[in-house]
Each structure stands twice: as structure tokens, then as C-alpha cells.
Amino acid sequence: MASPSDQTARHLQRLAALVSQRRAQLRLKKQEAAAVCDIAYMTYWKIEDGQSVRASTYSKLEVGFGLRAGSCKAVLDGAADSVVLEDGTELIEGGQIARVDTESLSDGIPDAVTKSAMLVAPELTGRQIQDLSEQVMEELRRRGILPSAP
């Protein structure tokens, strides 16, 4: 079992990676990020370096970066592997989890199937492509990926 200091260091490094990822997502340089968060540049640098700072600094970081309150503490306590943005998007190390707008997805899938079928199987008729698209939509509904048709 890892010692408490090893776990603390691991949590600080995880938060550092998430903060760095969010800064890159916002297209900010470190100095700009510090200004957005209303913290000193060296203090911001410490966060991305995996060093501990005051709880009030993490609060400023959450406000400046649009993170839900308490996200940093949850990562530092080992209670979370991610930070959550105000819009509900969840940042995980190396990626993000976003809520999918199933209405947009439902609207876009038939068009994507049609374009793909025309490229891959140009011999298909328009009716065959439409049938294929309907079958794809039905399968996605059956799997629970899309809501049932109205």
C-alpha cells in the first residue's frame, strides 16, 4: 500500500495534469492563466508543478477556469479522478467526458450514414441507403444509445 505522502503526491500530480489540460483547452499561457484566476504567476506555476498551495488558491482557480466548486479538493482528497466544469463536462486526465445532445445526434446520424454509404458503396440506390440509415437508427434506439422514436 502506498504511503500517505505518495498518495498526496499522486493526487497533486493528477490535479496538475487536469489544470494544465484545462489551461490548454482555454488556449492560455501560464501567465495568462494566472491572471484569469487572479493568482500570482509563481503560485499558478506551483499548481501545474504538482506542489500544494492554499485552499483559497484552488477556489480562485475553480472560478477562473470555470470548474465546479470543490472539484480541486475532491481530486486532492482522492475522491475524484476528474474535475467537473460548470457546464457539466467532466475533464479526465488526457480527455473529457461531455454530455451528448441526443437530438443533434439523431439529426446527424442519417446524414452521416448517407454520405458514408455513397462513398463506400456507390452502387446502392437511394432507397437502399435510406433503408440502411433507418436500420442504423433503429439499432441505436434498441441499444439505448438514442431515445425511442416519438
Score class of each variant (00 low, 15 high):
Ser52Cys: 00
Thr43Asp: 05
Ile47Trp: 03
Gln51Leu: 13
Asp49Cys: 09
Ile39Cys: 07
Ser52Asn: 11
Asp38Thr: 10
Ala33Gly: 00
Gln31Ala: 10
Asp49Glu: 13
Leu26Lys: 13
Arg22Tyr: 01
Ile39Asn: 00
Gln31Cys: 05
Lys30Arg: 15
Lys30Ile: 05
Thr43His: 01
Ala35Gln: 14
Thr43Phe: 02
Lys30Cys: 01
Ala33Ser: 06
Ile39Glu: 01
Gly50Phe: 03
Ser52Tyr: 05
Arg27Val: 06
Arg22Gln: 13
Asp38Ile: 01
Ile39Thr: 07
Lys30His: 09
Glu32Ala: 11
Lys30Trp: 05
Trp45Glu: 13
Leu28Phe: 10
Tyr41Glu: 10
Glu48Val: 13
Thr43Gln: 10
Arg27Glu: 11
Ile39Trp: 03
Gln31Lys: 15
Asp49Val: 01
Tyr41Thr: 07
Glu32Thr: 04
Arg23Thr: 00
Lys29Pro: 03
Gln31Asn: 12
Glu48Gly: 03
Trp45Met: 14
Glu32His: 12
Cys37Asp: 09
Gly50Leu: 05
Ala24Arg: 15
Trp45Ile: 10
Glu32Asp: 12
Lys30Val: 02
Lys29Ile: 07
Leu26Ile: 01
Glu32Phe: 08
Tyr44Thr: 02
Tyr41Asp: 08
Asp38Arg: 15
Val53Glu: 07
Ala33Phe: 00
Ala24Ser: 12
Arg22Ser: 04
Gln21Met: 11
Lys46Asp: 02
Val53Met: 03
Gly50Ile: 03
Gln21His: 09
Asp49Asn: 15
Cys37Gln: 10
Gln51Thr: 03
Gln21Gly: 01
Leu26Thr: 00
Val36Asp: 00
Tyr41Trp: 12
Tyr44Lys: 12
Trp45Tyr: 14
Glu32Asn: 04
Leu28Tyr: 08
Thr43Tyr: 02
Ala33Asn: 03
Arg22Ile: 13
Ala40Asp: 14
Asp38Phe: 00
Lys46Phe: 01
Tyr41Leu: 13
Lys29Val: 05
Arg22Val: 12
Lys30Met: 13
Tyr41Asn: 11
Leu28Ile: 11
Ala35Leu: 14
Gly50Met: 06
Gln25Arg: 15
Cys37Gly: 04
Tyr44Asn: 06
Ala40Leu: 13
Ala34Asp: 04
Arg27Tyr: 09
Lys30Ala: 06
Gln21Pro: 03
Val36Ile: 08
Tyr41Cys: 04
Glu32Lys: 14
Gln25Tyr: 12
Trp45Gln: 15
Ala24Leu: 15
Cys37Phe: 10
Gln21Glu: 08
Lys29Asn: 05
Arg23Val: 08
Tyr44Phe: 14
Lys46Ser: 02
Glu48Ile: 10
Tyr44Val: 07
Ala34Ile: 10
Leu28Arg: 08
Val53Thr: 13
Met42Gln: 10
Cys37Lys: 09
Gln31Ile: 14
Leu26Tyr: 07
Gln21Cys: 03
Ala33Val: 00
Leu28Trp: 14
Lys29Cys: 04
Ala40Thr: 07
Ala34Phe: 06
Gln25Cys: 09
Trp45Arg: 15
Lys46Asn: 06
Ala35Thr: 11
Ile47Asn: 00
Val53Cys: 09
Val36Glu: 09
Arg27Asp: 09
Ala34Met: 11
Glu48Leu: 11
Lys29Asp: 07
Gly50Lys: 08
Ile39Gly: 01
Gly50His: 05
Gln51Ile: 07
Gln25His: 13
Lys46Leu: 06
Arg27Gln: 12
Glu48Trp: 09
